[in-house]
Amino acid sequence: MMLRFFLIVLLSLPAQAETVTATRTIRAHAIIADTDVALSTMAVPNGYQRLVDVVGQEARVVLYPGRPILVDDIGPPALVTRNQIVQVHFRGNGLEIVTEGRALERGAIGDLLRIMNLSSRATLFGQVQDDGTILVRQ
C-alpha cells in the first residue's frame, strides 16, 4: 500500500525541464564554445534543452550569464561579412556568369544577402552557398 502511494506521488510531480544558459557574457558574432554554456533547471518555451544544439553556433545578440539562450539569439556562423569581396554566380536560362561583388550584409549559409556588382554597381540579392560564394538566380 505504501509503495502505491509513493508511486502516485512520484508520477504526479511535474517533470523538471532543463534549459541551456550562458555561463559568461558572450558578445554578438562570437562562436559559442562548450565552456560558455551550461544546463539550468528552468522551463523556457523558446529555449534550447540540449547543449549540442548551441555549441558551435554564433551569437546574434549579447548573451548574459544565467539567462536562457533562446532560439532567435543564435544561428549558424556567418561565412560572409559586410564589405567583403565575394564571388558572385549569376544563373538563368542555361547561362552562368561569374564576377566579383561586395557584400552589403553579413550572412551564413542559405541567407539571402544584398550584394553590389563591382562592375555595374547594381544592387542584387543572392543566397550564400556553403563555399562562401553568392548565387543569384533569375
Rank of each mutant, 00 (worst) to 15 (best):
Leu3Lys: 15
Leu3Ala: 14
Arg4Pro: 00
Phe5Asp: 10
Phe6Cys: 03
Ile8Gly: 01
Leu10Ser: 10
Leu10Pro: 00
Leu11Met: 14
Ser12Thr: 14
Leu13Met: 14
Ala15Ile: 12
Gln16Ser: 11
Val20Phe: 04
Thr21Ala: 14
Ala22Val: 08
Ala22Thr: 07
Arg24Lys: 15
Thr25Leu: 10
Ile26His: 02
Ile26Val: 14
Ala28Leu: 10
Ala28Met: 11
His29Met: 12
Ala30Arg: 06
Ile31Met: 02
Ala33Asn: 12
Asp34Ala: 07
Asp36Arg: 05
Asp36Thr: 05
Val37Thr: 07
Val37Arg: 05
Ala38Lys: 13
Ser40Thr: 13
Thr41Glu: 11
Met42Cys: 06
Ala43Val: 00
Val44Leu: 06
Asn46Cys: 09
Asn46Val: 08
Gly47Tyr: 04
Gly47Ala: 06
Arg50Ser: 13
Arg50Ala: 12
Leu51Glu: 02
Val52Ile: 13
Asp53Gln: 11
Val54Ile: 08
Val55Asn: 04
Gly56His: 09
Glu58Leu: 10
Val61Arg: 05
Val62Lys: 10
Val62Ala: 10
Tyr64Lys: 13
Pro65Ile: 06
Pro65Asn: 08
Gly66Tyr: 10
Gly66Gln: 09
Pro68Thr: 04
Ile69Glu: 01
Leu70Thr: 13
Val71Cys: 02
Val71Thr: 13
Asp73Arg: 04
Pro76Ala: 14
Pro76Glu: 12
Pro76Cys: 00
Pro77Arg: 08
Ala78Val: 03
Ala78Phe: 08
Leu79Thr: 02
Leu79Phe: 03
Leu79Gly: 04
Val80Gln: 01
Arg82Phe: 02
Gln84His: 05
Val86Ala: 08
Val86Tyr: 06
Gln87Glu: 15
Arg91Lys: 15
Gly92Val: 12
Glu96Ala: 12
Ile97Gly: 00
Thr99Ile: 11
Glu100Gly: 07
Gly101Asp: 05
Gly101Phe: 07
Arg102Tyr: 00
Ala103Ser: 12
Gly107Ser: 05
Gly107Lys: 06
Ile109Val: 14
Asp111Leu: 06
Asp111Glu: 10
Leu112Pro: 00
Arg114Ser: 09
Ile115Arg: 04
Ile115Glu: 02
Ile115Gln: 05
Ile115Asp: 02
Asn117Ile: 05
Asn117Asp: 15
Asn117Leu: 02
Ser119Met: 09
Ser120Phe: 08
Ser120Gly: 07
Ser120His: 08
Ala122Ser: 01
Ala122Arg: 11
Thr123Glu: 14
Leu124Glu: 08
Phe125Trp: 09
Gly126Phe: 02
Gln127Phe: 03
Gln129Ile: 04
Gln129Asn: 12
Asp130Gln: 13
Asp130Phe: 13
Asp130His: 12
Thr133Phe: 05
Ile134Asp: 01
Val136Gly: 01
Arg137Gln: 10
Gln138Ala: 14
